[in-house]
């Protein structure tokens, strides 16, 4: 079935993670208004990467990484049009210009660089084609995605972390009941003071953000630091309506089980 969508909603990190965990094989094509990227995978490892129409032939890759001199580059470049990377690589090895390891490392570095550049993409249609083959003229490499995923994740880690710590901006804040706490003596930044001045069980974090003209991430970061410092606690805003449905009987486990079994029997009979 289709594995496609938009990077706006499903990040490149999530895609790499999916490919890695599901050990997928195929070609991931990402189309942005500016360029098209292609990433090849074999059993969840990166085997190929290309961004746009850049010259990414082996000679160019090696030259850019200072593995070839200008004269070597010119000499090999003339052969690039008729030979694939594999053949060129063999010539370089047999001529004792480079070792196989140096060539493979250079190709791997280039692919990793392409993926790194994709981390910054926030918009673009993606499609994973499990049937598409990889270009045969390429030197096959096999790059573990784990490190790339970790690296990319760090960039969005803070954002996700804060969203998990403060899942809803509809919560309110109250000063913690710590004995001896004197808010006037605490050293806060201007932004933190702004937030502190609005701490009140009746104000949601969202309302505080609006009043202080802060974006979601800013207010989350400040609220998190205030919570960590023990100054404030998250609470439900006062005035919220209580639930109207009775909770499960919490004491009697047999009664609970009986109740759920009755529900099961009823659902089955529908």
């Amino acid at each position: 079935m289709a594995l496609q969508g938009n990077l706006r909603d499903f990040t490149i990190i999530q895609l790499l993670n999916l490919v890695h965990l599901a050990r997928k094989t195929g070609l991931l094509v990402i189309e942005t208004p500016e360029e098209t990227a292609q990433l090849g995978f074999l059993d969840g490892r990166l085997t190929f990467a290309r961004l746009g129409q850049e010259d990414d032939g082996l000679c160019t890759v090696l030259y850019r990484r200072h593995k070839l001199t200008t004269s070597q580059y010119r000499q090999m470049q003339s052969r690039q049009t008729t030979m694939g990377d594999m053949e060129l690589g063999l010539i370089l090895i047999n001529s004792d210009i480079l070792t196989m390891e140096e060539i493979i490392n250079a190709v791997q570095e280039m692919y990793v660089e392409v993926v790194r550049r994709l981390f910054t993409l926030i918009e673009g249609f993606f499609k994973f084609d499990a049937e598409a083959g990889l270009p045969e003229y390429r030197i096959p490499v096999s790059i573990e995605l784990e490190n790339l995923i970790i690296e990319g994740s760090r960039q969005i880690q803070e954002k996700e972390f804060l969203q998990e710590e403060i899942p809803s901006l509809d919560m309110a804040l109250k000063f913690s009941d710590r004995q001896g706490m004197d808010i006037q003596k605490v050293n806060l930044s201007v932004e933190e003071w702004k937030v502190v001045s609005y701490v009140n069980p009746q104000n949601t974090i969202k309302q505080i953000a609006k009043a202080t003209k802060m974006r979601d991430m800013e207010i989350r970061r400040i609220v998190y630091s205030l919570i960590q410092a023990g100054l404030v606690e998250l609470i439900r805003p006062t005035g919220a309506l209580p639930g109207t449905v009775k909770p499960m009987p919490v004491q009697d486990h047999d009664e609970q089980r009986s109740l759920v079994n009755r529900l099961i029997d009823r659902i089955r009979s529908i």
Partner: peptide, 27 residues
Amino acid sequence: DFMWEILSEGMLGFIVMVDSNRPETFR
């Protein structure tokens, strides 16, 4: 979403519906 917490009070359990065709909603 301010309704969510009110609705969740006393619930036996919950079901998260996800549209399998709209990966943009997965997050």
